[in-house]
Design a protein around this nucleic acid. Structure first.
Lengths: 344, 344
DNA sequence: AGATGTAAAGTTACCGGTAACGTAAGAACG
DNA sequence: CGTTCTTACGTTACCGGTAACTTTACATCT
């Protein structure tokens, strides 16, 4: 009876087979429902499966090399930022609907963390990887090249990605907002964001923004909040610092809506009227924008859709279906009432 | 040369060993650094590891049953809710620091989704599971019992959990807020939350709240927003609906701070002064509370810490170290200016 | 009745590591 | 100088499934 219980105390297919009086192979065929057995045999086997509480060991199947795993490694910088949480939600839900599981890696925005995570997750033979960002360490690139599996780089659209890219063009985001604000007559722009050590999407937005403003003859005064996440409070005190620096600023562009909201709160607290005294613009069209008294001038991006599209690209690639190399999710500017009215 | 390349095109330990002119076993010993080889042999093997870009296949190791996997399944209801994102962040960071990986499952608040996910993730032989909530389907319970691995139920503290529990007592949260508000003289309380089909933590808070209010001789008028996440906008229109219903309400308790913020925005829009005309209280002490003009009366919970504690409990249990069955993270009420002043 | 075909099984080998055990060669010892 | 002890390896078997192949038991046909 208890002659062959594995160390894990788990029921194996062999035990089910023995209990049912058939061979392992027959039991395996029944489990997979691929035919080649009689109804009577199937019932016998399934009865024992229920009785013993047998649960297949997918590790063994994948290990045997007969099929690839259903793991997809997903690296995300951090979840304190609402937009990444939404992206992850989109990815996981969509992957789940196709029978894949997310193996999460929070990289804290560093390529070193990402590298360590990539090495670990690759050793688990994932079906593919979804990486946030387009900047990777040399060793990461080596590992990915060697592994030769599907890779989707998300967030900042990469026209020549490692494998595939899904995202938006952040430079264009910044540029469009810059052009819009300049078009409204703003000249002395401010920017409030967190510090970005590595070239990342926020930097790309700022670059695009600065270019558009410069093209329009304006200036951009930058204020970076060091060592902090791009959330409400850094927006609040970043604004305080920018204004305290004596910079002459008629409109502030924030790294995202959460920071812009923090800025709005600072303005309200200090009696600065928006948009009469100062304009405020954000990025991301985050949920909070939907309940503010004033419609925040922002740039809408569907983060959930971005995540879903990344998962779809991954699944398509795993299934061998064709998929475009770079998928642009797009964005659109949302004119709000936190900036002065255009001459529409 | 190319006599034994596996179908995955991946370099195996056997290939490294052959290239180095040693046996698989010796190469294995070198990889694990467990000794039993000469310096010369180690160098020979490592040189080939680098040359061939060998990456161990952890699936094989775990599969062989010699050690358990470093996967930990983590089920989370949704990431649209900021607090769960924070919990997940705490879990993943802490697990990662111990060398474990998070396999994510978003259950959309249903035990059916949870059940399906549990079955899948168990087939991957995880080292343990962290589940949000204490309500599980009968089959889930069967599966978990059968699997016999560490399980940490988080969020709503469970004094008699399946295995371990880390969280707070949500009933007590509600009770404390109810007692506080009644103590301030409020009598006609309102509650605005999302609908909860299943008995969950928000329901427990409401129950505790209602009890405290009833004890104090007050009443609670409930307003549920159907089919929505507990975010800003539902707080906004939930407030609108509650007040439109003609209910006489002097203070509203919200399911969380995000909803409370939505409520504050509604009040501001309609000219209801807070706290002069109506009191507002939330739950969770979310980041947004830090930048509002008025300090939101809320209840502070460290969600990040909750996640970390859950991961610590899991790791302790896996390592065979003793760990308390139920770990209470605690909370404290934050009196704000969105409710009238107490007679302190 | 013997030949042939087919459905329903069983047998064998293998995936990539590691535990357990075996062995050869040199060192240490009396 | 033979015995014993180490060190540094090599050999074998196994984890839990599945592909590929073989066998068995009948039914069907000539």
């Amino acid at each position: 009876m208890a002659d062959k219980i594995n160390k894990n105390n788990k029921v194996s297919l062999a035990e089910v087979a023995r209990a049912a009086g058939v061979s392992k192979m027959t039991a395996s065929r029944v489990m997979r429902g691929e035919g080649g057995y009689s109804d009577k045999t199937r019932d016998k086997v399934m009865a024992k499966v229920d009785l013993l509480g047998y649960l297949p060991n997918r590790l063994a199947t994948v290990f045997a090399g007969d099929q690839s795993s259903t793991f997809v490694g997903v690296s995300i910088p951090d979840l304190g930022n609402e937009v990444f949480a939404q992206v992850l939600e989109g990815i996981d839900r969509k992957l789940g609907s196709f029978g894949y599981q997310t193996v999460l890696g929070l990289t804290q925005h560093t390529i070193e963390e990402e590298e360590a995570w990539i090495e670990t997750v690759l050793s688990w033979q994932p079906a593919g990887l979804i990486l946030t960002g387009r900047s990777h360490s040399p060793r990461s690139l080596d590992l990915l090249r060697n592994a030769g599996l599907p890779v989707v780089e998300i967030w900042d659209l990469n026209s020549s990605p490692l494998d595939m890219s899904v995202g938006i063009n952040h430079y264009d985001c910044g540029f469009e907002m810059g052009r819009y604000l300049v078009g409204l007559g703003y000249k002395a722009l401010g920017y409030v964001g967190t510090s970005h050590d590595t070239a990342n999407a926020a930097t790309a937005r700022l670059d695009g923004f600065a270019k558009a403003v410069a093209d329009g003859g304006g200036t951009v005064t930058r204020q970076f909040c060091l060592h902090d996440t791009a959330s409400y409070y850094p927006g609040f005190y970043g604004t305080e610092q920018l204004l305290a620096s004596g910079a002459d600023v008629d409109c502030i562009y924030y790294q995202n809506d959460a920071m812009a909201f923090g800025g709005l709160q600072f303005c309200q607290k200090t009696g600065l009227r928006v948009p009469d005294h100062i304009g405020v613009a954000g990025w991301g069209d985050m949920p909070i924008a939907s309940v503010l008294q004033q419609r925040l001038t922002s740039l809408h991006v569907s983060h959930l859709k971005l995540g879903q599209a990344a998962a779809e690209a991954m699944v398509a690639r795993i299934s061998g279906e064709p998929h475009e190399t770079a998928r642009d999710i797009g964005f659109h500017l949302v004119p709000g009432t936190t900036t002065r009215k255009g001459d529409l």
